[in-house]
Amino acid sequence: MEKLKGSLYVALAAASYGVLASIVKYANLQGVHISLLTGGQFFFGLLILGVLQIREKKRPNIHDRKSMLLYGLSFGGTSIFYYLSLLYIPVSFAIILLMQAIWMGVVLEIIQTKKVQIKKVLGAALAILGTLFAADIFNVNTRIHPQGILFGLLAAMSYTCNMYASNRVATNTGNLTRSFYFILGGSIAVSAYWNLDLLQHFEWKHFLYWGIPLALFGTIIPPILFTIGMPKIGTGLGGIVSSFEIPVSLACAYYLLDESLNTFQWVGVLIILISIVLINLNKKGRTN
């Protein structure tokens, strides 16, 4: 029962992340600037998490605070680059590029452990192959947007750092406090990147209307649910369940933005999901 509950928490967290891109894309099509969307997301996220973490008993030391703030920069980078990619490519392609964190995570693990696991290398190769199909790269009529691809890959690199920080940095600190410091670091990155654009494009109406839901779906609900659910099911099963973000993101893009995928692209999505399962299975065929 505990594993079932944990899986549900992780699935809901992934689903929450899955709706973000469609909300941002829709708001941008309405003329709302990306700087206001990211600024609102991190402002309200930081505000609410700041209140929630006050009574937590497991407080960080100075070293952990510095580490969380440093790695928190990648949380801001993920949102900045991911949302910028949406200016050039569809949501369905942006989520596929973000999921390149699958093989990037494998590469990071190999560098750290200096050990190569064949099944993970094979899984990473499958993820890349699936991406080629999902991006419809074999269609001669497909238009490639270099800027969109660049921002998407930068978002994936930042997302890889996010996952590393969530699993390794200041793990003895309370979960809400960790989330607060990560988002504080992300807020610094957002403020530094957009700087004067935050003032130039600021409108209270849009700041409240879009900032609050983006904060809930992007910086509040997922971290809390992940920290509750992951310990119950482990990182292996957690990695598989969290891939629920992909179909949710594609479904939102279809219903909200009228985006659709052809047969080859759906095959690519399926290959990517298989690669996630393969990477997170141990030798006995069970999740780590």
Rank of each mutant, 00 (worst) to 15 (best):
L196N: 15
L196F: 13
D197H: 11
D197S: 15
D197K: 13
D197E: 15
D197G: 05
L198P: 08
L198N: 07
L198D: 09
L199K: 03
L199G: 10
L199Y: 09
Q200M: 14
Q200V: 12
H201T: 12
E203R: 13
E203V: 07
W204Q: 10
W204F: 12
K205D: 13
K205G: 10
H206V: 00
H206D: 15
H206P: 02
F207H: 00
F207P: 05
F207Y: 08
W210L: 08
W210C: 10
W210Q: 07
G211A: 08
G211V: 07
G211L: 04
G211R: 04
G211K: 04
I212F: 02
I212C: 03
I212D: 11
I212L: 08
I212R: 04
I212P: 09
I212T: 09
P213D: 13
P213C: 09
P213Y: 03
P213Q: 10
P213S: 11
P213F: 03
L214V: 10
A215Y: 01
A215G: 10
L216R: 02
L216E: 04
L216Y: 00
L216S: 02
F217Q: 06
F217I: 11
F217S: 10
F217Y: 04
T219Y: 00
T219D: 10
T219I: 01
I220P: 05
I220M: 04
I220R: 03
I221Y: 00
I221C: 00
I221N: 01
P222M: 13
P222L: 13
P222G: 13
P222N: 14
P223D: 08
P223S: 07
P223R: 01
P223T: 06
I224V: 14
I224Q: 01
I224P: 02
L225Q: 06
L225D: 11
L225G: 10
L225T: 11
F226T: 10
F226Y: 15
F226R: 01
T227F: 04
T227E: 14
